[in-house]
Design a protein around this nucleic acid. Sequence first.
RNA 1: GGCCCCAUCGUCUAGUGGCCUAGGACAGUGGAUUCUCAUUCCACUAACCGGGAUUCGAAUUCCCGUGGGGUCACCA
Length: 359
Amino acid sequence: LIEKGKAYYCFCSPERLDQIRKAMQEKKEIPRYDRHCRAIVPEEAKKRVSDGEKYVVRMVIPDNEIIGWDDLVRGRIEFDSNVIDDQVILKSDGFPTYHLAVVVDDYLMKISHVLRGEEWISSCPKHVLLYRYFGWELPEFAHMPLLRNKDKSKMSKRKNDVSIFSYKEKGYLPEALINYLSLMGWSHPEEKDIFSYEEYIKVFSIERMQTTGPIFDIEKLNWMNQQYIQNKTDNELKQIIVDFYPQANELATETLDALIPLVKTRMQTLKEFAELTEVFFDAATTGEDTELAHIVKEAFIAISDWNHAMIFEEMKKIMEEKKIRMPVLYKLLIGKDRGLPLPQVLEILGKEKTLALLH
RNA sequence: GGCCCCAUCGUCUAGUGGCCUAGGACAGUGGAUUCUCAUUCCACUAACCGGGAUUCGAAUUCCCGUGGGGUCACCA
């Protein structure tokens, strides 16, 4: 590029760069490199380089030209070359900057389509120019909309939780996350909301890509995750839960098996399993109403055939007599006023452990 | 601020001049089912940023505003 006159050595110090940038800003001009070193004749530049002077390499931006490309999602995009900076393409440490690297790397990798975030639009003309300078065929460019926060600013590592691993840790299923994300800026041709990754690959088309930046809303992800959890078979879900929450292995197999269908419709994320099944892991505290506890205990002791139907019968009698409602019994037995269906939970827990809750 | 991108319910979106008194999904509200909570089912609330122009006819085309976003590094 240097030999072709499409790039040149620059010896300007960071201090000088800072200075001219500030000066230009004060004059309300576009803060750009002033092309100071572009005037240095090649022989002199080469000599200074071989003398060991520190340098970077900048690309030459032509004057008064329109640089553009046909973006696959946005159509024709054009820039006036006069607003483009003589970008550094090789740093003083000898490493290329992103602009040089991405063009060369994509070329070597035989990349046909460059799909990237909208934030890259303004540096794209530099890339277009680099392709031209190298004499390489331009790939297709498609600039995707940016995921945004509630305040509409773009999502970023600094401000947001954008690590896919953290979503996994929070108990989101990979397929649910993928499904949800696929709907950010794109829509299924049949307006479906739930579809598999395989189907997504099959029906995806860049034409359906939207140009506006969608706001990442966790509510719909939650709903979608719940849908995916519900659509699992009991066995699949059991495996997923055990993988996610190894403590589940402490439970007897029958216990866990019986719990799965109960938790299935009540989990938005896998993390909620622990909360839902707390009573199976920790000895729950008894309620304050000791009189009620005593009555319930007596009634339960009398149950010979320990199953949820019988348990529920006894509970109904007590609720009628004491004029109380279900939440009171929940509170008494599991320490919370809501949860998995109580009679079933108690059946699974077993008579002995249930009575222990009421000691 | 310059340049660039964008603009339909609170949110994700359908919509490519007439099928739109704008459709679906999430959330919200009300109801049905029900042993709490969920699930499931039903219903309701809710949007084309503003102004011009083109057209017999604009959410859809064009222009001007306004608003939002991105970017202006020897970071990617």
